[in-house]
């Protein structure tokens, strides 16, 4: 059985949107269907910029990006939109919700837009995602009034509503309490293995984090960013044997 490459990043230089300085140099990286990658590194090391590049929100300064086997350029128009619809993106800092809307309206928006549904028609389709993320009780509440932990879940439900094949997640548990971290670990594991809300179809995950510890036992592949380089790529055993010192540094308390 052939392995399907969802992401192929070839010799890419990545810079944050407004900055000219390259934050990660010469990245060559392949993500296959069903993988669960954790992209770890110190704060401000360029992980978010790299995720934004993978989500076609921040073009690489150099190099090539192929998603789902298709070379990505900014001039693709509708093709670009159809690729984006196959990718779920979770931003850091509360998930960038639309605070003039309710939780339900936030989660329903992509579904309504792409399937031309009224809000009433979208409710039935959206509720399973709210229930799966444990936020159904807040459905009618304006997102301004929703706590930080639940805002992230709203963003997750919204990203899942389009049933993505690939989920890019930026620092989902930063600043959350242990019970919330447990929930995210469990839910993402289920998503990667196949969650009923997505008809048991496994979702490929790429998760960026400052703190590797919650994800070390769960993720299957690891990429470590340091000194503007993607320094280690591979499974946990490879990581521990070949890059033990770097791993130890990223797991240490002083690192954070």
């Amino acid at each position: 059985m052939s392995v399907e490459h969802l992401i192929e990043l070839i010799a890419a230089d990545v810079a944050p949107g407004l900055a000219r300085e390259i934050s990660v140099n010469d990245v060559s990286w392949t993500v296959n269907r069903g993988d669960w990658w954790v992209l770890a590194g110190p704060p401000n090391s360029g992980k978010s910029a790299l995720l934004m590049t993978l989500g076609i929100l921040n073009p690489a300064a150099r190099g090539e990006l192929r998603l789902f086997g298709q070379a990505v350029t900014q001039s693709m128009g509708d093709e670009l939109t159809s690729i984006r619809r196959r990718i779920g993106m979770l931003f850091e800092d509360g998930g960038h919700l639309f605070d003039q809307s309710t939780v339900l309206e936030n989660v329903a928006l992509p579904l309504r837009y792409h399937h031309n549904l009224s809000l009433a028609d979208a409710v039935e389709r959206v509720m399973p995602f709210l229930e799966a993320c444990g936020i159904a009780a807040f459905a009618a509440q304006n997102t301004r009034g929703v706590g930080r932990a639940n805002r992230r879940r709203v963003a997750l439900a919204r990203a899942l509503a389009l049933q993505p094949e690939l989920l890019l997640i930026d620092n989902p548990v930063a600043g959350l309490d242990p019970s919330q971290i447990r929930w995210w670990r469990g839910f993402l594991s289920q998503l990667n293995a196949g969650h009923p809300v997505l008809e048991n179809r496994p979702v490929t995950l790429v998760l960026a984090t400052d703190d590797l510890r919650p994800w070390l036992p769960l993720a299957r592949q690891f990429a470590l960013v340091r000194d503007r380089k993607l320094q280690a790529l591979g499974g946990r055993e490879e990581l521990e044997s070949k890059h033990g010192d770097l791993l130890a540094e990223l797991l240490s308390e002083e690192h954070r």
């Binding site: 989500g55 929100l57 939109t81 993106m89 931003f91 800092d93 960038h96 992509p110 837009y113 389009l162």
Partner: peptide, 14 residues
């Protein structure tokens, strides 16, 4: 400034 435009793009919304 708060990234809502990027969010729309990420959701495939022009």
């Amino acid at each position: 400034a708060l990234g809502e435009v990027e969010t729309l793009e990420a959701l495939g919304i022009d």
